[in-house]
């Protein structure tokens, strides 16, 4: 395959990844690395580098669209970014120390978990719990618009959420994904932030987290321009197109299908890791 053919095919694949990622809210990164490594036989380190860059593009590009909802909580986001960025640096350093098979194995497990998450319906936590005093001190409690006017919410279990965010950042730096799924989990389940607020704040944080490890990847020579070019442009175009379609589709079934695809990729990644093909 020459560079031109490779660019076109990878660009199309990345477009699909970005499109589905936006529709399902899982982000394009999670299918991108398996696509590049399993289908295009790209070395996983190049794949992770290109994926990280596309994650930043998606997050920054979608910020304006998310803003129309006005749900993001800038203080929660900024505070938790301490954990995600430090975690991301740690993950990026780890990526140079462990074998590509180990990275593939961790990736497989994360895919399986993401597949499970996407097939489940989000539930809002009961709103009447007392806030974590730490959350009150940090000025995190907020409100979000609902059909019945603004609803206020309190933030709980800040230390647990902070710890999970460190893990999310580490996975992001190791695997080149936005790990939006883990971030939403930490905010929604651990900290009791409503689903709508969680996803928007998560998107806010994904770009910053990815930027923390992208610098390390760039200086290590893991970001290849010839590969990152079609990946970044494809994912960006796909996610913008997906965000437009999103308003008009029922995402329930789609999430199921996407979840199944992701789980299958997870098994494939694990198989590749254990047979030493990655």
């Amino acid at each position: 395959m020459n560079n031109l053919e490779f660019t076109i095919l990878v660009g199309l694949g990345s477009f699909m990844a970005g499109f589905l990622g936006a529709l399902t809210g899982l982000g394009g990164g999670v299918v991108l690395v398996p696509l590049l490594t399993l289908v295009f036989k790209v070395d996983i380190r190049y794949a992770v580098g290109a994926s990280l860059v596309s994650v930043i593009a998606t997050s920054s590009g979608a910020a304006v669209a998310y803003l129309k909802d006005g749900f993001s909580n800038i203080r929660i986001g900024m505070f938790l970014e301490i954990a995600t960025t430090v975690g991301a640096l740690f993950g990026a350093y780890l990526a140079a120390k462990v074998s590509t098979s180990a990275i593939g194995a961790v990736f497989g497990l994360v895919l399986l978990y993401s597949g499970y998450l996407s097939s489940r319906t989000p539930v809002d936590p009961p709103p009447d719990q007392k806030p974590d005093p730490l959350a009150t001190r940090l000025g995190m409690n907020g409100e979000y618009p609902s059909l019945a006017g603004p609803k206020s919410y309190n933030v709980h279990r800040v230390p647990l959420g902070f710890g999970l965010m460190f893990g999310a950042g580490g996975l992001s730096g190791l695997l080149g994904i936005g790990s939006g799924a883990v971030k939403v989990l930490a905010m929604e389940h651990a900290m009791g932030i409503p689903f709508k607020g969680s996803t928007t704040t998560s998107n806010f944080m994904v770009g910053v987290t990815a930027a923390a490890s992208a610098g390390v990847y760039l200086s290590r020579g893991y970001v290849d321009p010839g590969l990152a070019m079609p990946v970044m442009l494809g994912v960006l175009a796909g996610s913008l197109a997906g965000a437009r379609v999103l308003a008009r589709t029922k995402t329930r079934q789609l999430r199921w299908v996407f979840g199944a695809v992701i789980a299958a990729l997870g098994i494939e990644m694990l198989y590749g890791a254990f047979t030493g093909k990655l």
Binding site: V53, I56, A57, S59, S60, G207, V208, A210, A211, A214, G215, L218, V223, P225, A228, M232
Partner: peptide, 8 residues
């Protein structure tokens, strides 16, 4: 890509 990383 450098400009992109710089945006966040």
């Amino acid at each position: 890509l450098l400009v992109l990383i710089a945006t966040p």
